[in-house]
Design a protein around this nucleic acid. Structure first.
Lengths: 165, 165
DNA sequence: TGACAATGATTAGCCGCCTAACTAATATGA
DNA sequence: TCATATTAGTTAGGCGGCTAATCATTGTCA
């Protein structure tokens, strides 16, 4: 999370122009505004999910499981797909298991592994909450026209190519 | 923080088209990519700051103090400017005080208040770390041309007007 | 004046993120 | 075979968000 109601001003940036002649204020200000926008979006998403007793971290776990054919996955797979550590995933699963949304099943073939399964209750929650999330996402971007959305997406992907950092 | 290496696919979104006919996949995918980009930027910033023993939360406190004429402010003012709760600010100040970067001074006129002052050590750290932060921000946006930056900023501000939510 | 409200800061407890360290199980290779 | 490396998952401890509750102080007003 990154909140900063008061954005850096030109004067502050200009102080360092002598040391960093190539740094333009525009890039700096875009960076800060980008962080603020991202934080705001995440906040909105968490508010929607909180009504269902979820956080975005737990929510993504449910989504990743739901997308599987068998609604099952290993913690390490989920951690990799979500881009967090196995340690963090361990905590998310513990919470979800406590809510009865997923279950742990020991793997007999490889006793190091534990299979995480989406429960019926978990699947039902996904069906209930997903439309609200999609609606929020669409509504958030709705101030932009179709062409602006395309351009916005193009610029985002230019800064953050999906195929890898 | 929001990390999701595997982005939602068209098929998942299409499942709900019957229920949510107005939701277009583009808006959803932009939202998710925007969160991922914001998280990545924040991660980069935290990495730079970590070399100076700082987090972005503590860093902003130092910046807000440095911008003041007298390098002093009340915790409640800092919390408002940073957009976090007073409780969180209390924790940030405790950490910064432990590092010797800020100091607490009791206010004699209103004994409920405590004045937070940037120490010399804190000011020196700002001077050292700030150029690195600015350089990171500029470098992050550098893949975009001047015109693209202007357009990107325009679109961000259209989604998140600074004057208020 | 004195009860009550409002304000400033803090604490406690929850969550999700991290790294580092640990346990158990499996794979490897001399 | 058996020591070693690797892998899967968890735990411990730290940080920075949050809300809710608490305490001290100050302000308000009947």
């Amino acid at each position: 999370m990154f909140y900063l109601k008061d954005f850096p001003d030109e004067a502050m940036i200009a102080r360092f122009r002598a040391v960093l002649p190539h740094v333009d204020a525009n890039g700096v200000q875009i960076f800060v505004r980008l962080l603020a926008l991202g934080s705001e979006c995440l906040l909105q998403l968490d508010r929607v999910l909180a009504e269902h007793g979820l956080s975005h971290g737990r929510w993504i776990v449910l989504m990743l499981l739901r997308r599987r054919e068998v609604w099952r996955a290993l913690p390490s797979e989920l951690a990799r797909e979500q881009g967090i550590t196995r340690a963090t995933m361990s905590g998310l699963i513990r919470g979800l298991e406590g809510q009865g949304l997923v279950s742990r099943e020991p793997d007999e073939r490889d006793k190091r592994q534990t299979v995480i399964a989406l429960t019926e209750k978990g699947a039902a929650l996904v069906e209930r909450a997903l439309p609200e999330c999609l609606e929020l996402m669409e509504r958030t971007l709705s101030p932009l026209s179709g062409g602006e959305k395309d351009e916005f997406r193009r610029l985002i992907e230019k800064l953050f190519p999906l195929g890898g950092a």
